[in-house]
Simulated assay, not measured.
Amino acid sequence: MATPILQFGTSRFLQAHVDLFIHEALARDQALGRVTVVQTTGSAASARRLEAFNLPGGYPVRIRGLANGAVVDQEHRVTAIDAGLHADRNWTAVCELGATSAQVIVSNTGDRGYELSDRDGPALLHATAAPRSFPAKLLVLLFHRYRRGAAPITLYPCELVANNGTVLREVVLQLARAWGLDDGFKQYLSRSCLWVNSLVDRIVSEAIAPAGAVAEPYAIWVIEAQKNMVLPCTHPQIVVTSELEPFERRKLFLLNLGHTVLAEHWQLHQLPKDMTVLQAMSDARMRAGLEAAWEEEVLPVFDALGEAGIARDYLAQVRDRFSNPFLAHRLADIAQNHEEKKQRRLRPVVALANSLQLPLAQPRLRAALGLAAARAAHAA
Rank of each mutant, 00 (worst) to 15 (best):
I238P: 00
N164P: 11
G65I: 11
R177Q: 12
A70G: 06
E296R: 10
V277H: 01
N163P: 08
D120C: 05
L155I: 12
A225Q: 14
G69W: 13
P232W: 06
W221K: 05
L55Y: 02
C95H: 02
L346V: 09
T36R: 01
R169Q: 07
I310W: 03
A292P: 00
H259S: 04
Y314H: 08
Q237W: 03
V318Y: 15
A376T: 05
A308C: 10
L168M: 11
A335K: 04
V171S: 04
L315H: 12
R148N: 08
P246C: 06
R119L: 08
G42H: 07
G42T: 13
T234L: 05
R366K: 14
A31W: 00
P300F: 03
Y114V: 01
L356H: 11
T128V: 09
L315R: 15
F253A: 11
C95M: 13
V61Q: 04
E243A: 10
K227R: 14
F21K: 02
E248G: 06
A292Q: 09
V104Y: 03
V104A: 05
V277W: 01
T41G: 01
Q279D: 02
A377R: 03
R49L: 01
V71S: 13
A211T: 08
I334G: 02
P300D: 00
R366S: 15
R119G: 02
Q39G: 13
V106K: 02
A130V: 07
N197H: 03
P363K: 06
I63A: 07
G33N: 12
T3H: 05
M1I: 08
L331Q: 01
G58I: 14
F143A: 12
E96M: 09
A207D: 01
R202M: 12
A293Y: 01
D29H: 15
I220S: 13
L278A: 14
A211D: 11
E206T: 15
R145A: 06
W91H: 04
A219I: 05
Q103N: 03
N90K: 02
G33Q: 09
K186I: 13
G289P: 04
E170R: 15
T241P: 14
I22Q: 02
L26P: 07
A351F: 03
F253W: 15
L32H: 05
L139I: 09
K273P: 00
H378W: 13
S198H: 05
S198I: 05
T79A: 10
V72H: 04
E115N: 15
E51Y: 03
I220D: 11
A83Y: 03
A70S: 10
A379L: 06
G65V: 10
A176I: 14
V167S: 09
A215Q: 02
G180F: 07
K341C: 04
R48T: 08
I223G: 07
V37Q: 08
A70H: 13
V298S: 01
A361W: 00
L26E: 08
F53Y: 15
Y114M: 00
S117L: 10
S323V: 04
R285V: 11
E340Y: 07
L155G: 01
D118T: 10
F326E: 00
S107L: 12
N68G: 12
L194T: 10
R375G: 15
R148Y: 02
K341F: 10
A45R: 14
G149L: 08
A263P: 05
R147K: 14
K342C: 12
T36F: 03
L231E: 04
A93F: 00
